[in-house]
Structures are given as C-alpha cells and as structure tokens.
Design a protein around this nucleic acid. Structure first.
Length: 701
RNA sequence: GCCGGCGUGGCGGAACUGGUAGACGCCCGGGACUUAAAAUCCCGUGGGUAGCGAUACCCGUACCGGUUCGAUUCCGGUCGCCGGCACCA
C-alpha cells in the first residue's frame, strides 16, 4: 500500500477512488467465495488424486499456468511432479468456449495465438488395445488412427496404473520399478529437454493386442510418454512417428510402413501418401478420408471413438498458503463435502501467528482448531473445514465486475449496472497475463454468463499489451543488475510531465524499449519550449499555413491517441511547436488548442498555462475537463503539395503542385525541370504516370 | 521441431491503400550568447564520389531473387533476433 499510491499520484494518473476495493478484504472475497460455490453447485469443482506440479520451496501445489516452463511462478524454483489429492476447477470443460470466444473479441493476433496454443486442442481418436490373456483394455489416444495397421508395439508412461495392477504377472518387475524410480527423480526439465535419447523397459509377461490385426505386440514403459496427456499410453507407429521410430530402432522393433513416401530406412515419414499394408484403407491417398474411414470402422466394432484432447489441464485450485480466500467447503464424515451455507459467507480468514506452510503439506489454517472444527450444515454433526486457500487468481478473475458496483453488499454486482458497463471496453496489460489472468477470468466470466449472472460471454471487448521499459543497458530492469529506474526519482528531477511525455514518446507502445536519460532531457526541453509559447502569444491574425497544420495536428493527435500511437502524437506536437517557434508568434486560440492536445501527456504544465492565459477565472474551469478540440476535415487537406518527379522511377526533381493540378499541367511542369529535361533528351517517352499529390513518373526508352 | 512477431542511420524510432525512405527526439559537429562553463538559441547531420560552391551522381530499409512505371510495404527463398508452445502421441 504505501509506495504505490504515491507513484500513482505523483504521476497524476486519474482514478475514481470511490470505486476502490481490495480482493483481500472480506466484503470482496465474500463474492469470490460465492462464485466458487456456484462453480461447485454446477459440477465444475472436483477433487482428484493425480500428478500435479508442486513447488518444494513454497511447499505449495501449483496449477499448470502457475508453473510455466517448469518453474514456480512465485519463487522460480523448479517444480516437481507429485501425486496429490487436489481440488480442481474444470476449466477444460470451457476449452471450446474459450477458443470460440476469441472470434468475437478485438485482441492482437499474438495474444489469440498464445491462448490457442496454451489450450492446445487436438482432434483424434481413443482406441482400446486389449491386454493379452486379461480382460483389461488399454486405452490410447492418437491423432492418426489411420495408421493402426502400422502399430508394432505400445508404450505406457512410467506412472501408468496398469503396471501396478498386473504387477505379479510382470516377470521383470525389478527392472520396471528401477526405471520408474529413475524417472521420478528427474525434473521435468531433465525429462523433456535433456533426455532426448529414448529410454525404456520392455514389460516381460504382459503383451498387448493390436485390435485391428489381432497380432500380439510388445508393451514398454518409457518416459517419452507422459501421464498427463491423453491416456498416458500410446500406440507406437514407428514408420510414421519420429519418436516411435527412434525408440523402435533402439529396441529392435519392427517398422511397418503404411503410408507411401519418404525414406523409412532413414527416418519416420509423417507426410501424406497412398495407404498400404492397411487392409480396407489400402489405396486411399487422402489423410482425411482414411482417418474418417477408420473412425467409422472403430465405431462399428466398438473398439474406439472420435475424441479431442487439450494440452490445457484442469485448474489445480487449492493452495497451502495462508494468504488466500478460504475455500468454503466442509468435510463431513457422514455427508461428504458440503458447501458453507450462503448466508454464512464470507468465510473469514482467521488471524494466525505463523504464516509458513507446514512440512506436512498442510496450510497454516490446519493448525487452528477453532477454524478447522465446525458442525456440518447438513446433519449438524462434527465436521472439519477445508484448510487450503484459493490461488491469487481467484479474486482477480472477476474484479472488473466489482468495479461496476463496488459497494454492493447484496450481490456481487447489480445486474443493471453490469449491463450498463460490461463488457470491459479495453483491457491493456502485460503479455505475462495472457495464459493466466486473461484465461482464468475469461473462464469465470463464461461460466457466469452460462448461469445467467452476466450479460455477455466475453468479459473484454478489446485487449492490448504494452512493451516493457528496459534498463539503459537494454536488459530487463532488475535490482541485481542495478539498472532499475524509479519513476519517483525522475519526477523529482524533471517533473511528472516529463516522465509521462517521455514514457509515451520513447517508442512504439507495444514494443520493449531501453531507458535513456538523454532522451528524458529532450522531453523536458520540449516542455520548457512549450511553456515559452505564452511569451510569443499575439493578437495577430493566424497564418493560413499554420491554420492548416493546426487542423492536421488535431486530427493526427486525436487518431494517434485512439490507436495508441502515442509516440507519433507527441512527435506531431513537437513539429507544430517548431512551426510556432519559427513563426515567432501564436494566437491565443491556437495556444488554447495546442495545450489541450498536449494535456493528456503533460497535464500539469498545460493546466498552469491554461490558468496563466486566463482560461480559469473562477478557479473551477479546468483544462482537464474542457472539451477536446475538433478539426475541420477540409482544412486538414493540403491545397498544394511537394511531389517528386521521377524518370524511370528515379527521383530527378521535386515540384510544388496544387493537389488538383490537372495531368497535362503537371506533366509539362515536371518536364520543364532542368534536371528532368536532361534525362528526357533524345529519349522516347513510353509511359507517363501521374498520381495527384503523390508522384509524377516519366518512363523513357 | 511447431506457432506468432520482427529485422530501417551512431541510438529510440517515423513512413497513408505500393508513390520523394529516415518524420520527431537523442547523440555528435559548427556557430551565437558568456570573462568562462552550464543552460538557452541558430545551423548541419544515412554512406560514398566529383566540385571552392550552388549542386549533381552512385549506393542504401538483414541477404538473394521476382512482380511493378515505381517495393521498407506485395510474392518466393535464405539468414538472424524476440516471444509462446513443445518427446502432446
């Protein structure tokens, strides 16, 4: 709290402080818990024991989104995969809606792509492979079910449960266990980045059956198959999948080509081609057709069906942290999991002495008996509260809705107010939130829309992002590099107007740009020169050229601000200033317009100038709330323009022409230029191009 | 490997729908003011060749090629950088 408002105020950022709230206050998280309960009621909260990301340093279970790149979002240590009993939000159920919704919003392509690739939808088929001499069927997921005839072995992930089930039939259980242990020790990084060399163990005593050929095929465990994607088991088609190919080569498995093409002696072939060795698929040449035909066959025989897979996983939602919204669930030995009744919300976070999570994997709340022990709202018997808390993204997943109605204590926000304000017109933020906050909040909002609580499926109409301001050395600012710029220091030395102007002027808004002290000074110089305009204010009539330029600048600055091209807006204002300075005078009317245009960037100095020239006689008529200048479209159009005269596409002269100058006149004027005439002499004119106001080009031979 | 984006002076960056590349700012050089310095103001500033000079010509938007009267812009290829995903079956 202490430093942030100072920065916000010293740089004169404007907020409606009446709408201020904090997601950590109970009058806010009341409604975060309420939304959680709605999710629970609609079957979107479930508990499951699976492999999850765990940060050994923070001692906390993390979601996939919070452990991108295999690192903890908070402390950046490597996460490990542990089998844990975890609360999940079924975000995958909204995967298709999250994808489809992207078609109806104004987001940059890069952001859409990032969301799409994070969701990672793929269409394929689930196929059952019988385990020989058992009733067990091993389900696999494949995107190329048309290559089923080329399956020569199967691979399951080291963690696959089928192994434990048939433990006593596996003759080399010792080897299998040793391999599993080795895999468990590896970090995600080692397993995916370093271990490109295929490893695995053949399961002795257990074999699979290719459901389409009836042939017995060997079964392996190998860590190139992940438990977290698909079913954790694959059918291996070495002829047409490079990973399977490498594995087959190493373990001496058969490689059966089923698609013509490539050089199977050297590598797997994943391209298109005629189907061979594939029974009823033989002769088909189109991937789409053969997949379709195989799917039909699988469905008829009841051995497989069409299916989709997502890389995105369900949202691991509970954290073993103190600072988070308590999860409003009660564990009753009789009734199971029961929601805290709505009228008992908010379920308050109890005060605690020690914030550290316990070594037992429990949250600090577990150590408070008064909190843990409660009565079941259903049966009235003794019960225990869930002691984990929600992740930081919970409260932020709907805050924009609360801004519409921040003090409502009856509902999370009044429906009429939501309808008035939503959707958010423009959400600008960092790229780092695209696969976290943006994704999560879109999910919650889609859900609230589905249950009729909000009026639009998508929360944000438009999304943009800003580039990072780098240190003067071109590196990301960091304390350890010592290249951090504190905006308050800049304000103290040059003023808030200079800081604001510089930050907007320093480069393209969406691109990263290094800090430059020298350029900051340049912006200060600019503002000092602006301040000097009052000295040359005159009552004289305005020059027509200046008038035209003024109108052009109003247009440009207005458009540029709208399109977030702040750097060129400021450049246009600098150019116009240069003109006034050169002319040595500015009319009062022009000065008024000028400072209005500059005021979003430099609100203080322009407000002062406004007052200085008598625009605020009653002390209440502020520039900040004055009307934005308008322009006359006709006056933004040049009457005359300097255009280039080319001969064979090379500029040989430059002439000033009326924009509506007729073709004949333009041509004769152009040809009359000595340096043009020089190139025309003795040549035949083949073609003459004249684009009024743009170019004159004479093609000769 | 796949997806998205980018590559323009010494630097940050401009350039409409294909129409005089380098706006604007910084740095740098020269000059004015000053006893002097800082600040400020004025002039110059992509590279090269010729000329005392005005000026003229050549080269130039990562590289190679294409389309076009004309390409930073469109197309094909190559290289490099940034971001995202990744043994994803």
């Amino acid at each position: 709290m202490p430093s942030r408002p100072i920065r916000i105020r010293t740089t004169s950022q404007s907020f409606d402080w009446d709408r201020e709230f904090a997601t950590s206050r109970k009058d806010y998280y009341h409604w975060t818990q309420w939304i959680f309960e709605k999710l629970f009621e609609h079957g979107l909260v479930f508990r499951s024991k699976t492999l999850v990301n765990y940060c050994p340093h923070c001692k906390v279970v993390l979601s996939n989104e919070d452990s991108q790149g295999g690192q903890c979002d908070i402390c950046h240590s490597d996460v490990v995969q542990l089998s844990k009993d975890v609360w999940f939000l079924r975000i995958t159920q909204y995967a298709d809606k999250l994808l489809e919704g992207l078609n109806h919003v104004d987001y940059p392509e890069s952001i859409k792509q990032q969301e799409i690739s994070w969701i990672g939808k793929s269409t394929g088929a689930f196929v059952d492979f019988p385990l020989d001499e058992t009733d067990e069927k091993l389900e696999i997921y494949t995107t190329r079910c048309d290559t089923l005839y080329g399956v020569t072995f199967m691979v399951v992930a080291p963690e696959h449960p089928v192994l434990d089930k048939y433990k006593d039939r596996i003759k080399n259980w010792g080897d299998v266990e040793a391999y599993r242990l080795g895999c468990a020790k590896k970090t995600e990084f080692e397993r995916t980045q370093l271990a490109k060399d295929k490893t695995g163990v053949k399961i002795e005593g257990l074999a699979a059956v290719n459901p389409i050929t009836g042939k017995k095929i060997p079964l392996f465990i190998a860590d190139y198959v992940m438990m977290g994607y698909g079913t954790g088991a694959i059918m291996a088609v070495p002829a047409h999948d490079q990973r399977d190919y490498e594995f087959a080569r190493k373990f001496g498995m058969d490689i059966v080509q089923v698609i013509k093409g490539g050089n199977i002696k050297k590598e797997a072939y994943s391209g298109d081609g005629e189907m061979i060795n594939s029974g009823f698929l033989n002769g088909l040449t189109n991937k789409k057709d053969s997949i379709e035909k195989m799917l039909q066959y699988l469905a008829e025989k009841g051995i497989g069906h069409k299916g989709v897979q997502y890389k995105m996983k369900d949202w691991a939602f509970n954290r073993q942290r103190y600072w988070g919204e308590p999860i409003p669930l009660i564990h009753c030995p009789k009734c199971g999991t029961v929601l805290v009744p709505e009228n008992e919300l908010p379920l308050e976070l109890p005060p605690v002495k020690n914030f550290e999570p316990g070594t037992d994997g429990q949250s600090p709340l577990a150590k408070i008996p008064e909190f843990v022990n409660c009565t079941c709202p259903k049966c009235g018997g003794p019960a225990k509260r869930e002691t984990d808390t929600m992740p930081q993204w919970a409260g932020s997943s709907w805050y924009f809705l609360r801004f519409c109605d921040p003090h409502n204590d009856k509902v999370f926000a009044d429906r009429k107010k939501l309808e008035y304000w939503m959707p958010v017109d423009h959400y600008n933020g960092g790229m780092e939130h695209v696969t976290r906050h943006l994704l999560y909040s879109r999910f919650w909002h889609h859900f609230l829309y589905d249950i009729g609580e909000v009026n639009t499926p998508e929360p944000y109409a438009k999304r943009t992002y800003q580039g990072m301001i780098l240190g003067a050395d071109g590196e990301k600012m960091s304390k350890s590099k010592g290249n951090v710029i504190d905006p308050v220091d800049i304000v103290n030395e040059y003023g808030a107007d200079t800081l604001r102007t510089y930050v907007m002027f320093m480069g393209d808004y969406a691109s990263a740009a290094p800090w430059s002290d020298e350029s900051v000074k340049g912006c200060r110089r600019f503002l000092d020169r602006v301040a000097g305009l009052t000295d040359i204010m005159t009552a004289q009539k305005e020059d027509p050229q200046i008038e035209a330029d003024l109108h052009k600048t109003i247009k440009k600055v207005s458009d540029d601000i709208e399109n977030m091209k702040f750097n060129t807006a400021i450049a246009a204002l600098m150019t116009l200033l240069n003109e006034f300075t050169k002319a040595g005078s500015i009319t009062r009317a022009d000065l008024i317009t000028y400072i209005k245009l500059l005021s979003p960037f430099a609100p203080h100095i322009t407000e002062e100038m406004w007052q200085y020239i008598g625009m605020n006689p009653d002390g209440k008529t502020f520039l900040t709330v004055s009307e934005w200048p308008s322009y006359d479209e006709d006056k933004t159009r040049d009457v005359e323009k300097e255009i280039g005269v080319q001969v064979n596409g090379k500029v040989r002269a430059s002439i000033r022409l009326a924009v509506d100058c007729p073709r004949e006149e333009a041509l004769s004027r152009g040809k009359a230029e000595p340096n043009v005439a020089r190139y025309l002499e003795g040549k035949t004119i083949v073609k003459e191009i004249y684009v009024p106001g743009r170019i004159l080009n004479i093609v000769v031979k």
